[in-house]
Write a protein that binds this DNA or RNA. Structure first.
Lengths: 209, 209
DNA sequence: CTACAAAGATGAATGACTTCAACTTTTTTA
DNA sequence: TAAAAAAGTTGAAGTCATTCATCTTTGTAG
């Protein structure tokens, strides 16, 4: 199985992705030509296309790496979330935000989002959508955990509530990546201001009026 | 002022836009080449670029036309909205949806949205964002009208509420254009189901629990 | 070890958007 | 009205993503 050919293939793919992460970050997605990646990865242009179907495909592979990191970070929060409901929700949201710029720049995020909207039926569009869904599901899981603890009202369905929270944090993230001047700190503060009031509405044993 | 040159310029621009609306609808934005538009408008490729900076620019001009129609339709609702709060909100939302496919196809909407996200700092991105804001403002205006009438609770700020409603209808519209198989009717039903419960929460003189 | 088959790498060719230096048409000036 | 200036048009050339026929490398059978 692990013959020479297999090893070489794995190595080439790794080199191409490595080149992409480096060059996209350094020069911007748009400015980087496939030939630049090929040069850095020491393969030909044609070979890049043997491993990735399109330029957007290479970007999406990077997005997938990033989102895996984000999901991992989220899992850590899920295992032992803060006591207070608002703190717990914000802990997860901030974990997402804090791990969102590991491999990707704002420009890369914008391009990936644009790609997913423009061609939702392609493998890439579907892949992005699927990553979104996993994040929304993790948010729902957190709500479930809090409900099991008894800190979130029993009469709420964790799934749509998680989706609502995710839609909001995602929309706010979109505003963030659309504005090159907005800092992570401003993003955090805004979402904080939005989320705490909502959290008050869903805590158990409190009258809502 | 209205010399020969001016007339010719206006006429060329009109012909190019007309060609774009026709061809984009018939063959799809992606499939249409600038040369096709140039041929139909009886100008050269270079001339197309004297009137529009990029291919996306031509699309955005079409989007602007469409949104003007949508805003007009909305204004009609604003002058005499239905009595019930939920009916009034839905009347405006449906007016938007019903006028959204006059000039644009789903593919064209997707492309325009992708463009606006990918390049938010360009004239086109800003233009799209601005159109969005005008729609959100109109939704806020409707809430204001209803509040003035006394059917919406006094203690709510119409502006963020309008933005929330717009964000939701916009998000739902995004889902609609992402799915080529979804009909306008399904979109309407979904938004109806989302909006009526929310409307109940904001009507005046009703206890919320 | 040799020859054949399979897998994969290669880069020149293709196609589409965009640019720009040269050419036309319109307007202004005398 | 004729020349000069200004404005605008033109399409060939440039750039870059993507494809594909050909060549090279690796694996396998005798």
């Amino acid at each position: 199985m692990a013959g020479l050919r297999e090893k070489q293939k794995a190595d080439r793919e790794r080199r191409i992705l490595q080149a992409a992460v480096t060059k996209f970050r350094a020069d911007g997605y748009r400015a980087v030509r496939i030939e630049d990646l090929a040069d850095m990865a020491e393969v030909s242009v044609g070979t890049v296309y043997n491993y990735y179907q399109t330029k957007g495909d290479i970007l999406m592979a990077t997005v997938a790496m990033e989102v895996e990191e984000v999901l991992d970070a989220g899992l850590t929060i899920l295992t032992d979330p803060p006591e207070a409901v608002d703190d717990a929700l914000l802990a997860l949201i901030f974990a997402y935000y804090d791990h969102s710029l590991e491999y990707l720049t704002k420009e890369m995020w914008r391009t990936a989002m644009a790609l997913a909207i423009e061609a939702p039926g392609t493998p890439n569009g579907r892949r992005y959508f699927e990553l979104d869904q996993r994040l929304a599901a993790q948010m729902s899981d957190l709500v479930q955990v809090l409900q099991d603890r008894g800190t979130v009202r029993r009469d709420l369905d964790p799934r749509p509530l998680g989706v609502l929270l995710f839609n909001n944090l995602n929309q706010m993230f979109l505003e963030f990546v659309k504005d090159d001047d907005m800092t992570l700190d401003v993003l955090r503060r805004r979402v904080d201001a939005q989320t705490r009031p909502l959290a008050q509405l869903i805590v158990a044993g409190t009258a809502v009026h």
